[in-house]
Design a protein around this nucleic acid. Sequence first.
DNA 1: TCTTGACTCTCAAGTCACTTGAGGGTGCAT
DNA 2: ATGCACCCTCAAGTGACTTGAGAGTCAAGA
Lengths: 275, 275
Amino acid sequence: MFKIGDFSRLTQVPVSALRYYDELGLLKPAQIDRFTGYRYYSLDQLPRLNRILALKDLGLSLEQIAQLLDDNLTPEQIRGMFRLKQAELQQQVRAEQARLLRVETHLKQIEAENQMPAYEVVLKALPGQRVLALRQVVPTTNHVGLLHNEVERAICDARIPIIAPVLSIYHDEDFKAVDVDVEIVYPVAAEAPAALELADGSQLVKREIPPFALAATTIHRGAYQQLGPGYTAIGQWIEANGYQIIGAVREVYLKVSSNETEAITEIQFPVAKVE
Amino acid sequence: MFKIGDFSRLTQVPVSALRYYDELGLLKPAQIDRFTGYRYYSLDQLPRLNRILALKDLGLSLEQIAQLLDDNLTPEQIRGMFRLKQAELQQQVRAEQARLLRVETHLKQIEAENQMPAYEVVLKALPGQRVLALRQVVPTTNHVGLLHNEVERAICDARIPIIAPVLSIYHDEDFKAVDVDVEIVYPVAAEAPAALELADGSQLVKREIPPFALAATTIHRGAYQQLGPGYTAIGQWIEANGYQIIGAVREVYLKVSSNETEAITEIQFPVAKVE
DNA sequence: TCTTGACTCTCAAGTCACTTGAGGGTGCAT
DNA sequence: ATGCACCCTCAAGTGACTTGAGAGTCAAGA
């Protein structure tokens, strides 16, 4: 019989952990002095402790280990448990590798600029939305703003509430400075009318814009002419981190202001991991 | 100005997390109603929240993020932080991959035997020890026991206390059934004499056995003739998990008993990860 | 026999980044 | 006036322990 300290030295398991396992019922001492409460361990408990350590090392929780050791499960259940753990670990390794890549990208950015990068790229989901939208080819990106002004006036006049920030969707495969295929998008409630005619005869139509499970996004503050670096940053990020673009870019106008330097815009690139 | 729920929808960050960030001082609402305590957030806080999310995604703790955002550190300090994180992540990826390999090995074992494996292999450190030892070539492994009996009697007679379990070290590179090069090892305190002569004239000498940072170990209960499967199991484990043997095998006699089926023995293979 | 120091006990609190729940107040539309 | 959805604070829970306080126990040396 060993006192807890001796057993701890023998097994290289901290005393506090042994007490914790006792509390959980995972490894009860062979004997407990009923007057002093001293725990006494026997060598016959070594195999059980060894199993506990081995299973813990595989990443199982103490609860799962208790089940495995005490609840005699069928071999099928045991296999299931480990296969689940295997899948979890594969997932986790992939996630950690991706994270490592992001850190390395970030580090390169910092070393290139010698300061914290100006744009932070965040991955998020894009929900689908019910919207009134107008798709047109306009001569230059500067015309997008004018188009928005026009459409917004019409929607306000028609007393249709806008329930989320306004956005543009750029349908060109690659960036184009001229003859831009843009869609002007206004999120509306289910009750909104199916269409709305503008002064120039073009039709605003109601549709659902699709959700994306993953988009690389960044936030830009300042004038719309200055969006370029934001696009560059996010493009580099996508490339460096092994993603590919799987949908049309969106610009979400979170804050519009008469003073353009106060404007806040989010750029969203729908993406997926390559492979 | 947005109420917390609206800001939560906008950013896809749970309300509870926003409140938590407020509590930490990481992201204070732009305004708080002094009567109702309602939090109001502004769009100008989006860039900061985005930075928080991006840095969190890189695996930094909220405390580190707060430092980065508020304590304006030198670019050198910032680089150091990320390089540290990078090293940590590399380490973690390696560890997870090794763990995954262990789970896969375990799973194969289970599928082969259709039950929990009989031997659990555990990695641990082997501390160095001061010992009295006798190295000899004996005809067969069966002679090891006899040698131990003899030596133990001599040490007891000399009134030298044995302060840890007795062990054998097998110095043969490969397993040998005959002409076994074995060392009989008795841990003793610093005060023990430097040598001790046996009845047959051989010398028990005092020395330090070296520590190993890592050893693959398993526990066997039962007769010493039955140790074979334990060696096999641990050998397969070492092979399957990408380790190599870097030192002499040890057998630690944790419990010796006149009834050999109650004996408990630990087999220890010093190892290192390949590469 | 007494003292000393190493050891043991229990119980509470801390770790991290939140989440969940209780109990109660607020704001807007019917 | 009454819902209803929202907001508040505060406490407790998560996992696998560790740390610390305060008190009792054990074995050896003086």
